[in-house]
């Protein structure tokens, strides 16, 4: 009887765990692309961002019982963002301090080939985006690539909703200026 009881309770546990797992797979996993995109742009590097997204996903799974319905994408992106900033603080603390990041333009990978490739508009845009501060970059990526509303951006980044508009305005202005400067440089 005791054995049976223990087995029975483990069985129920399995069922409940399977339910959670499936709910997680239905609600959270569909937003994996959004997670990958945000992390890639925050960390400016795919390999690092995959490690961070993996960690964020495991964290999301562990804390899944704290998700009480609502916007699963915003909930997940909030975790992804926090995990990204923790990673940045540990691995690239200097990048977090500066408002504008010159280091990007002097990366050792700038061989003649990549310089030639920078003529490509897309490449130029990527560099311009990457040169922005993480705070500017994240609002731009969330708004323009992810299509988030101001409310969602506020929820994900913790920026008060009243400030999202001005943050976004500054970020766009900076991106615009960087692009113009890059184009001028090329003309020389």
């Amino acid at each position: 009887m005791q054995r049976q009881l223990i087995h029975w309770s483990l069985g129920t546990w399995d069922v409940l765990e399977a339910q959670d797992r499936i709910r997680f797979e239905q609600l959270v996993l569909p937003h994996l692309d959004s997670a990958a995109n945000l992390a890639r742009w925050l960390l400016r590097n795919r390999a690092d961002s995959e490690d961070v997204v993996q960690e964020a996903m495991l964290r999301a799974y562990r804390f899944f019982d704290r998700f009480h319905g609502g916007d699963a994408r915003a909930w997940l992106l909030q975790i992804v963002r926090n995990t990204c900033y923790t990673w940045l603080q540990k691995n690239r603390p200097s990048g977090l301090m500066t408002e504008f990041n010159e280091e990007v333009h002097q990366r050792p990978s700038a061989t003649p080939e990549t310089v030639a490739a920078q003529a490509d508009e897309r490449q130029r845009l990527m560099l311009a985006l990457e040169s922005l501060s993480p705070r500017s970059r994240e609002v731009l990526v969330l708004r323009e690539l992810e299509g988030c509303s101001y409310k969602e951006i506020g929820e994900i980044t913790g920026i008060p909703i009243g400030t999202v508009m001005s943050t976004l305005s500054r970020a766009r202005e900076r991106l615009q200026r960087t692009l113009t400067a890059a184009a001028a440089k090329e003309m020389l």
């Binding site: 692309d33 997670a35 990958a36 742009w41 997204v53 897309r122 845009l125 990527m126 731009l140």
Partner: peptide, 19 residues
């Protein structure tokens, strides 16, 4: 410009599998 430059980074199939 942002929309037409194909900047969105999707999770690769290999990464999905690993995850």
């Amino acid at each position: 410009l942002l929309h037409n430059s194909n900047l969105y980074e999707h999770a690769s199939p290999q990464f999905r599998e690993r995850l």
